[in-house]
Design a protein around this nucleic acid. Structure first.
Length: 890
RNA sequence: GGGCGGGUAGCUCAGUUGGGAGAGCAUCGGCCUUACAAGCCGAGGGUCACAGGUUCAAGCCCUGUUCCGCCUACCA
């Protein structure tokens, strides 16, 4: 048996073996219908272009913990996996490949290009899935979906048409964010704002026919070419006389009016505002109110249009320089100030975004947002940690219409057709044969595709077969919990809420658990350019999957980011190894199946560890039920390493070796079996591989640990009762052992030197306890002799430690110099004095004694007494020691 | 500009109704004690950011200050 288990745990073979076993054996599969309660999670679908990063690793680990835990608790668990087509990202990747091969996608044509993307997806699209499997993800892979597969595409069309018919989708000309590199519209959310050190340019616009006029201030002077008015605040006395006049727009010499609008902030800049309706969202609004024309001077490619006159064809930033130069030459550039301001960038390619007038499709989100808001307010969906609810509310309350059309090829093409003959717009799930208006057969489908997040918004029900009324939906919708990072709370979570409530008439999930971001050890965001990325696959290669999972779990405290370093993972790798070795040791002594057994007539350590096991089992489930993953991991770490390994295994070694008779040997074997058995189950959700491996060596544990019963539900474990007496008694024995070890350590006595110890106490029950359990003390404190006596003369030549009402004397005659012990006692007494001082202050405070609850006062009194007793004993011993020293000296 | 989170041991962080300041790592000392040196046994180390306030009692509640991080926004 021993030879089967290597000295150090080697994860790689084990992981591969068990993952294949689980997947082939259908251990992840969730039946459509089942008697057990349903528990469902839909995976946040990673981009098909994605490579696994630590964010995924954390996200997947937490979901896997929940799923494996719920399975152990007896639920029918569905973890729905899949990937997202990631429109712009994927198109960019494939385009880059084509460019490298010298091909332009426009040469290729739309159809051929899309074919290429599907090919790419077929070749590389499963990479991310395979990486998730390396993490141990127990998804029901049979059900894997893709946002562009047939079923999901059907759902997308259905939703689009329904929303259009309900008046919640419309098309219109608005200012949108335009990425000139991706050549597509972007939703507000897809724009990242960055603080830029820019300039505020003051430009004079002469009143027509004069050479003087209002000065406007702008950060984007090139847009002046498209100005169609100058606006001032109607209250602004400086400009009263100008309203209604026209100015001569420099460089173009177009005559544009001076208008009054309360929108203008009198205190900013010069108080005069240039109005460019085609290139600024606010100007667009002002322009609409005042019926101003819009002149588009920056084209979709970021170059100036014909309307920009002589600047036509210039890149927008080149044009800015040219415009400034020309204005300066004419003496119209009055002032240039430094000015920091936010500049929008494309979240995919980081190009500076240009506000642009464009015809796009929008979702009117107001009515949808109201429902989504209400569902969280009334608790149908709970966001954990709660603090995110505020962000959620605020965003939904101020939500603007959602621009859903994108000018790219990869994605769900908008199901809208225009009749070339009569111009009639037809929105339908399938391509219409002819125009219902004029019966024309030449119908052009809108070339745009939908925002990727449009299909993701349907994910919780589209993956389960909607719009068909499937058994799967019936069993698993609403899902139990959504686990995700806060970065997509608005992109995705809020939109799923809206769509779920609108089309399913119920929330998509009962809980939303928002987890932290994984950062590097200094708290910086991991990024390729910074070079501080810790790659999960490298870590797995080095330390094993379980070590990575345990690390992430142990640090997944609510509301705080995780700072990760290899060092930490190494530490938890050691924990896995510790568990492995504890099991290895256990199997040297436990060779039988002790599943069904009674727990009577146990030794103190056995009773104690069973109590601890029960407590930890309850704590574990309570922690997972409330998403306190770090508490679960840390409790288990503490229990396994320090209580089970450091204390329990050491305490029962003599029994296991048969030194205490057959009866105690066997009961310790039984208890050891049970503790190991239950501990493996408790650990399994966090570290699935090592626990499965050990499980199969545990005598009598048949089948996979995935099918085991959680300890708190297991009848055999339910028989274990709490044993507060054992906890108290064991605590005392442990304190005695620690006290003696302490002396050994401080006095620098070699561990191989067996010591003689004498305990004095007047407490009969304590005497009994110590005598009955003296072998544990002798063994773990390495003693040559141990005896308990009534309190009396302190023996000569000893070092002393006090535990409760017992004075423990370690004979040191001839071993050490007593000045060391005197120094140690002085230090100890000083510590106690400090404690007593603190307590004195409290007890001498009438306010405390009168107002604090009786129990608290009593507790403080007891504590005070305890310290006082201890001090008295130690001080007495110190005195004796000193007289002894002076005696030997003289 | 608005909002949110954080500041606890050298480092990274727990601290769940306010009631004797904790863990891991690092450091120091001692151990090859037959499961594990990826280990064992000990030790040292904190004005809980700062200043006030409430309370018998504050790491925890309130106010202000300061530093760091994030989200968000239409001052051109």
């Amino acid at each position: 048996m021993e030879s089967m288990l290597s000295k150090g745990y080697e994860p790689h073979e084990v992981e591969k073996k068990w993952y294949e076993h689980w997947e082939a054996g259908g251990f992840f599969a969730a039946p459509d219908q089942d008697d057990r309660p349903g528990y469902a999670i839909v995976i946040p679908p990673p981009n098909v272009t994605g490579v696994l990063h630590m964010g995924h690793a954390l996200n997947i680990t937490l979901q896997d913990i929940l799923c494996r835990y719920r399975r152990l608790r007896g639920d029918n668990v569905l973890w729905m996996p899949g990937t997202d087509h990631a429109g712009i990202a994927t198109q960019n990747v494939v385009e880059r490949d084509l460019t490298a091969a010298g091909i332009d996608r426009h040469q290729l044509g739309r159809e051929k290009f899309i074919e290429k993307v599907w090919e790419w997806r077929k070749t590389y699209g499963s990479a991310i899935i395979n990486q998730l499997k390396k993490l141990g993800a127990s998804c029901d892979w049979q059900r894997e979906r893709f946002t562009m597969d047939e079923g999901l595409s059907r759902a997308v069309k259905k939703v689009f048409v329904a929303l259009y018919e309900q008046g919640l989708i419309f098309r219109g000309n608005y200012i949108i964010n335009w990425c000139p590199r991706c050549m597509t519209a972007l939703a507000d959310l897809e724009v990242e704002h960055e603080e830029h050190e820019g300039h505020l340019y003051h430009i004079m616009y002469p009143i027509s026919g004069t050479d003087n006029g209002p000065v406007v201030a702008t950060t984007r002077p090139e847009t002046m070419l498209g100005d169609t008015a100058v606006a001032v605040n109607p209250e602004d006395e400086r400009y009263q006389n100008l309203v209604g006049k026209t100015v001569d727009l420099p460089l173009t010499h177009r005559q544009i009016p001076v208008i009054a609008d309360a929108y203008v902030d009198m205190t900013f800049g010069t108080g005069a505002l240039k109005i460019t309706p085609a290139h600024d969202p606010n100007d667009f609004e002002v322009g609409r109110v005042h019926n101003l024309p819009s002149i588009k001077v920056i084209g979709d490619d970021g170059k100036m249009t014909a309307d920009a006159g002589k600047y036509k064809g210039l890149d927008r930033f080149e044009c800015r320089k040219a415009v400034l130069k020309d204005l300066d030459a004419q003496g119209l550039l009055v002032k240039v100030e430094s000015h920091d301001h936010g500049v929008g960038h494309c979240y995919r390619c980081h190009t500076v975004v240009e506000p642009n007038l464009s015809r796009q499709w929008f979702v009117k989100v107001g009515p949808l947002a109201e429902k989504a808001l209400a569902a969280v307010q009334d608790g149908r969906t709970r966001i954990v940690p709660e603090k995110w609810e505020n962000d959620y509310y605020k965003w939904l309350e101020n939500i603007r219409d959602w621009c859903i059309s994108r000018q790219i090829w990869w994605g769900h093409q908008i199901p809208a057709w225009t009749c070339t003959a009569c111009g009639r717009l037809i929105v339908a799930e399938e391509a219409p044969a002819r125009c219902p208006e004029c019966s024309g057969t030449e119908l052009m489908q809108d070339p745009d595709v939908l925002d990727t997040w449009f299909s993701s918004a349907l994910w919780p029900f589209s993956t389960m077969g909607w719009p068909d009324n499937t058994p799967l939906l019936k069993t698993f919708y609403p899902t139990s919990v959504l686990v995700t990072g806060f970065d997509i709370l608005f992109f995705w979570v809020a939109r799923m809420m809206m769509m779920g409530l609108h089309f399913m008439d119920d929330v998509p999930f009962h809980d939303v658990y928002i987890h932290a971001l994984v950062r590097d050890e200094h708290g910086k965001k991991m990024s390729k350019s910074t070079g501080n990325v810790i790659d999960p696959l490298t870590v797995i290669e080095k330390f094993g999957t379980d070590a990575l999972r345990f690390t992430l779990t142990a640090f997944a405290a609510q509301g705080r980011d995780i700072k990760l370093s290899e060092k930490r993972i190494e530490g938890y790798r050691n924990f896995i190894n510790k568990l492995w070795n504890a099991a290895r040791f256990s199997f040297m002594h436990v060779k039988e199946d002790y599943r069904n057994t009674d727990f009577s007539g146990l030794s103190l350590p056995d009773r104690w560890i069973l109590d601890r096991l029960k407590t930890v089992s309850q704590n574990m489930s309570a922690a997972i039920d409330t998403y306190r993953f770090n508490d679960a991991a840390n409790d288990l770490y503490q229990f396994v390493w320090h209580e089970f390994c450091d204390w329990y295994l050491e305490l029962i070694k003599p029994a296991l070796y048969g030194n205490k008779g057959e009866a105690e040997q066997q009961s310790s074997q039984k208890v050891l079996w049970r503790v190991l058995h239950d501990t493996l189950i408790l650990l399994h959700p966090i570290v699935p591989f090592v626990t499965e491996e050990i499980w199969h060596i545990l005598p009598g544990a048949d089948g996979s640990i995935m099918r085991a019963t959680f300890p708190t539900d297991d009848p055999a474990s339910k028989d274990i009762s709490f044993d507060p007496d054992a906890v108290r008694d064991m605590g005392l024995i442990m304190a005695v052992i620690t006290g003696i070890r302490n002396i050994r350590g401080e006095m620098n006595i070699a561990p191989s030197k067996a010591l003689e110890v004498m305990v004095q106490t007047l407490d009969d029950s304590l005497t009994g306890l110590l005598e009955q359990n003296q072998e544990f003390i002798i063994d773990l404190a390495r003693l040559a002799a141990f005896s308990v006596h009534p309190m009396g003369e302190k023996p000569k030549g000893t070092a002393t430690v006090i535990v409760e009402d017992a004075v423990i004397s370690v004979f040191l005659e001839g071993i050490i110099d007593f000045s060391q012990e005197a120094a140690r006692l002085e230090k100890e007494i000083a510590k106690i004095d400090a404690e007593i001082d603190k307590l004195d202050k409290k007890l001498n405070n009438p306010g405390f004694v009168n107002k604090a609850p009786d129990a608290v006062v009593a507790k403080v009194r007891d504590l005070h007494q305890e310290f006082a007793d201890k001090k008295l004993k130690l001080a007495g011993n110190l005195e004796k020691l000193q007289s002894l020293q002076s005696g030997t000296q003289s």
